[in-house]
């Protein structure tokens, strides 16, 4: 199984490790939203930089796959570029920045604007898989709460937000209920992206390397963002269009333009922005 990178197996990890990861992935897909423990390995990047996502991607990628990697929606940031180059080198996978051409998309903190389709797999890098962690620090207890579907605690957090701020103030990592059973953290994606997970035709896999957990949402699964009857879940919205491509209804990042307090809001999804800007050019 050696490759021209002497000493490395295809996709960096050895076959036994990939087998272990795939078992965890199968279990995760079989129990949507359930956190499956796995033996997280070292990969050539520091923990906290997406080692969970890299291991999941390594376990599922083949030479025929086309990989896209985004970091906060962008294809051109350091982390995204280096992970993409890593898999191009060790897995001989082709890479792309186009969402529609990718078969595997590894992401940190965003879901692409272009709707995902059947056959695509999106791999999330997860820093903190346990949605109850900051409410109940004991892992033994949170596991028990999941087992008994005892989720009153999560609503306490939402209650506190409304009591304090008048609305649910959580704007990222907004907790979801998967298939009506498991409470799940969607990784720190903005709540803007939460509705995209519901009934998505793509397979969604989540890897937390430091915390050693894998979980998944199979295609066409119900994903409900929590809320109260009188204070339902409301994704973020933006008033102005992207300053570069003019898209509306997309997630925007603030970009500082000078040292006098000037800034503009542009698409966080660089692929979408380029494409939309190109089309605007054509119609002009």
């Amino acid at each position: 199984m050696s490759t021209d990178l002497t000493g490395y197996n295809i996709a960096y990890l050895d076959e036994q490790t990939k087998r272990m990861l795939r078992r965890a992935l199968l279990k995760a897909v079989a129990i949507p939203g359930f956190q499956v423990p796995f033996a997280s390995r070292e990969v050539p990047m520091p923990r906290g930089w997406g080692t969970g996502g890299v291991q999941v991607t390594a376990a599922i990628i083949g030479t025929g796959d086309t990989l896209k990697v985004i970091d906060q929606g962008a294809d051109d940031t350091t982390n995204a570029v280096s992970i993409r180059q890593f898999f191009a080198a060790v897995a001989h996978a082709s890479t792309t920045t186009r969402t529609s051409e990718a078969t595997v998309i590894q992401t940190r903190h965003r879901i692409p604007e272009t709707p995902l389709t059947e056959g695509q797999t999106i791999v999330y890098q997860v820093p903190m898989p346990e949605p109850l962690r900051f409410l109940e620090p004991r892992e033994t207890e949170t596991r028990r709460l999941h087992a008994l579907a005892d989720y009153g605690l999560m609503y306490v957090k939402l209650y506190e937000d409304i009591a304090r701020y008048g609305h649910i103030a959580q704007t990222y990592s907004y907790p979801v209920m998967v298939a009506g059973r498991y409470l799940m953290s969607p990784s720190p994606i903005p709540s803007f992206d939460n509705p995209k997970m519901h009934q998505s035709p793509a397979l969604q896999l989540f890897g937390a390397g430091r915390e050693k957990r894998i979980y998944a949402i199979p295609p066409y699964t119900d994903v409900e963002s929590l809320g109260f009857e009188d204070y339902p879940f409301e994704p973020q919205t933006f008033d102005d269009p992207c300053a570069i491509c003019g898209s509306t209804g997309v997630y925007l990042d603030e970009v500082i333009t000078d040292d006098k307090g000037g800034s503009m809001f542009v698409c966080s999804d660089t692929d979408h922005c380029e494409h939309a800007a190109g089309q605007a050019e054509v119609t002009r």
């Binding site: 989720y151 009153g152 605690l153 306490v156 209650y159 506190e160 409304i162 009591a163 009188d230 204070y231």
Partner: peptide, 20 residues
């Protein structure tokens, strides 16, 4: 957690989903 949240928690645990 606020006093209201403390008293509300058992209600939420038994399925109350109306903040008001």
């Amino acid at each position: 957690v606020s006093a209201g949240g403390n008293v509300g928690e058992p209600l939420m645990a038994t399925g109350w989903r109306h903040y008001g």
